[in-house]
Nucleic acid binder design. Structure first.
Lengths: 110, 110
DNA sequence: TTCTCATATACCGATCATCGGCATATGCTG
DNA sequence: CAGCATATGCCGATGATCGGTATATGAGAA
């Protein structure tokens, strides 16, 4: 799973949101580092829906503009949980090696 | 950064290794889940070298077979450190949301 | 009024990392 | 001698993401 996809699932884990709100949520979540392109977001939404990880929650018309809300499915929650565990495991392995390396090499840089 | 790339850097954080050893190391590290294809590995090695994140450490001939060892550069170490922090941060955010969600929804599944 | 920006969804071509397969070569083991 | 592990490397296909564009409305600025 790529980063944008993971972030979309994370955004929806907090509760149903419509597309544009997901973009904003992710931007906030990442301190502005990640601002998904519309193409990326809606393609991801379609794909995740086809995979059964998210589904349409409801549709609203606000100021004559459509808002389509999405929510995480059970499968989506499981998938996000597994992916999160994977991220944490890999971070831990990398940190252990980096720490060991610093002890070995000291402050030396190539 | 994609997962295979991250894992290559992690492998080299433990010390210089040649390509094939990196594949084995990553397979072990991920409990067999990730076994990089040769094409992926050598392409990644070339790319990371071009980006200055790794460099050739030395070359050996073992049983008339070439072994090219790679090592992490200072830039590579920095990059891996930053990426690891990012992973950890995102895992934390996702976990917080998943936890809050479980409290909200209880055991309900869609 | 008119322009720009934020909101909101959606499509499109281009890019590029990865996948999967193949080629090549050697040495060990059954 | 066949098959497997070791070892590097190329190649075409796939697919997620990027960047841009289109469409539409309302709000606020010029």
């Amino acid at each position: 799973m790529r980063e944008p996809t993971f972030l979309v699932l994370t955004a929806l884990a907090g509760g149903p949101q419509h597309g544009y709100a997901v973009i904003e949520d992710i931007a906030g979540m990442t301190g502005g580092r990640v601002r998904l392109r519309a193409g990326t977001l809606y393609a991801a939404l379609d794909r995740l829906r086809a995979e059964g990880l998210i589904e349409v929650d409801r549709e609203e018309i606000v100021q004559s503009r459509l808002r389509r809300y999405y929510r995480l499915t059970g499968a989506g929650e499981q998938s996000l949980t597994a992916e999160t565990a994977r991220l944490r495991t890999q971070a831990t392995i990398a940190e252990r090696r980096l720490r060991a390396r610093r002890i070995q090499l000291g402050g030396a840089t190539t």
